[in-house]
Design a protein around this nucleic acid. Sequence first.
DNA 1: TATTCGACTAAAACGATAAAATGGTCGAAA
DNA 2: TTTCGACCATTTTATCGTTTTAGTCGAATA
Lengths: 225, 225
Amino acid sequence: MFEIWDRIVVNLNCFKNRLKMSNSLNEEVASVDPVRKEILTGARELFIHFGFKKTTMEDIAKKIGKSKSSLYYYFKTKEEIFEAMALEDMDQQHRIAVEIMNKEESVQDRFRAFVVSLFTHLILNKQEYSVFKAEVMENPFLIMNITEKRNAYMEVFLKELVLYGIRRSEIRELSHEEIDIWAKAINVSLKAIGSRLFLGNDQEKFKDHLAFIADSLFIGITKKL
Amino acid sequence: MFEIWDRIVVNLNCFKNRLKMSNSLNEEVASVDPVRKEILTGARELFIHFGFKKTTMEDIAKKIGKSKSSLYYYFKTKEEIFEAMALEDMDQQHRIAVEIMNKEESVQDRFRAFVVSLFTHLILNKQEYSVFKAEVMENPFLIMNITEKRNAYMEVFLKELVLYGIRRSEIRELSHEEIDIWAKAINVSLKAIGSRLFLGNDQEKFKDHLAFIADSLFIGITKKL
DNA sequence: TATTCGACTAAAACGATAAAATGGTCGAAA
DNA sequence: TTTCGACCATTTTATCGTTTTAGTCGAATA
């Protein structure tokens, strides 16, 4: 049921991506083939509505008025379609967050802006992401790939932010190992906070506290002397 | 499959517990009925070895040389046995952590000591907790109850720690709402860090960085002026 | 009164089997 | 280069009869 070894190839592949990653989760997103885009948007709607399993290739094909076989001209597998769609979403989400963030000067403001933008998007599109949550349960390795890429991207992003802060001497000197572990810890923390606190039932209350969470993760809660 | 509404009663019950909670996850732990303890230790071994589902009431009964019906004199359901066992474990784990923590003076040292103790225990007993991880997948509502109680306890604990720090003026003045949200955020963050970073495959590397993680969550990574 | 047990039940789990649905391939056609 | 219908192999679903197992109950024990 949990064939973890099947994923090794995938992870290696993902590691390669990690090296060349810059400001986009994957290069494929850049491709602008109209049919490809059509497939993706059609599939997205179905996936959000019915989930991964209940959405058949026939459904997707019918949705865009093409034959099932045509899909296989653009994508190797059904999983690839799902993955491409998910990455497209994340990519856009991150691009917006980075754009907003870059308007700020200090690291603290940048970090706050980034987190707030990310979570606001998450809260607004809450119901759309519910399909992911369900998918995680039923089909763990489907998401694993996407998660790996997202983690790799986020860690690189956070590390660069820290380096930026150190250059501006707003962040104290940290070893590479410390920066690495901080990025990892903050990444998983943000993810957990997002899914446990903001996708819960009382997200309205929390929306106002977004900035506070971002700040307290970054500057702590101790007294500044 | 996911009967969330069945859990409302449980959650309400849990909310009641939240009020009277002090330094123990549940009162029942205090009970020292020898047979009850015997059942729990017998069940623990079986649960760890075979998981919740594959361990039958017959097995547990045979293990302690009693009849199956006798178990029902002490516990209402099989789930209750599992829950009691899990809470007993957590209780002990927390008690140790608090004990170690109380040797420290400053909040920062206390927080660090608590986190380090908790995670060290987690790393050492890693394989025993793997049964929980598997159970979460197959039987989500079984763990939900335990998780709720643990969350409630942890949040209260963290809030008290913050108040202690404010009294000692080592933590800046925070509103009750801020303290509340900080406790929630740190709780889920710690849990995520624990399961994603320390239960992963490269926990050896991370063990040394425990203190750094605890500190950076608490005092941040910005420069102190 | 507090505790244990054997006999019992209702519901869920399991196994086997056949039928239907679905992911993916291939060669031809446009 | 792109699309498609026909086709295959595998997985999923449905059914049903059997077995296992969580939980109950009244009697017995101490």
